[in-house]
């Protein structure tokens, strides 16, 4: 878990091939959360884990170049905003908090519920993914006496 990438050619090649599929699977789990097992949290963790794999194999300095701290913090807040925004929109249109079918969308109640659940899951996924990545980079990059100010 150093700054440099690992020597093993096998590890580098396999993770280069696997990381896009891991991310695709994470998006699949988020999007299919309401009908099949999984959901925002699980998909978000899978998306974050792909970045952890990248950081372990290709080194922390490359991983820090891939993601920026400002964008991650914005994504964390955006996820919470999406979740609570959908809940508050339900309240504004006359329902309870997160009562999905009260949104005045031009589709029937079942589809409104499905679309709202998709939005909520996307919000959860964004927050969990960004929090996992930021946790990884801070924990792996922490040195005694040297902060993470340059990231």
């Amino acid at each position: 878990m150093g700054e440099k990438e690992v020597e093993s050619l096998v590890a580098r090649t396999i993770s280069r091939i696997m990381i896009p599929f891991i991310q695709l699977f994470g998006i699949y789990v988020i999007v299919h959360g309401e009908t099949s097992p999984g959901g925002g949290f699980q998909g978000g963790v899978i998306l974050g884990t792909s970045m952890i794999l990248y950081g372990i194999v290709y080194g922390l300095s490359k991983a820090k170049k891939r993601v920026s701290k400002k964008h991650l913090i914005i994504l964390i807040s955006l996820g919470v905003l999406i979740y609570s925004g959908i809940g508050l929109m339900d309240m504004l249109s006359g329902g309870k908090y997160l009562q999905y079918d009260s949104l005045p969308l031009p589709v029937d109640a079942h589809e409104t519920t499905a679309l709202s659940i998709l939005g909520v899951e996307l919000g959860i996924g964004l927050t969990v993914m960004s929090a996992t990545i930021i946790l990884f980079i801070y924990l792996a990059g922490e040195r005694i006496g040297a902060g993470m100010d340059n990231w």
Partner: peptide, 17 residues
């Protein structure tokens, strides 16, 4: 559902931490 969480968090993230 719980199995998903256990596999992703328990075997993945916690091990890394």
């Amino acid at each position: 559902d719980v199995a998903f969480t256990e596999a992703a968090v328990g075997a993945g993230v916690t091990t890394f931490l």
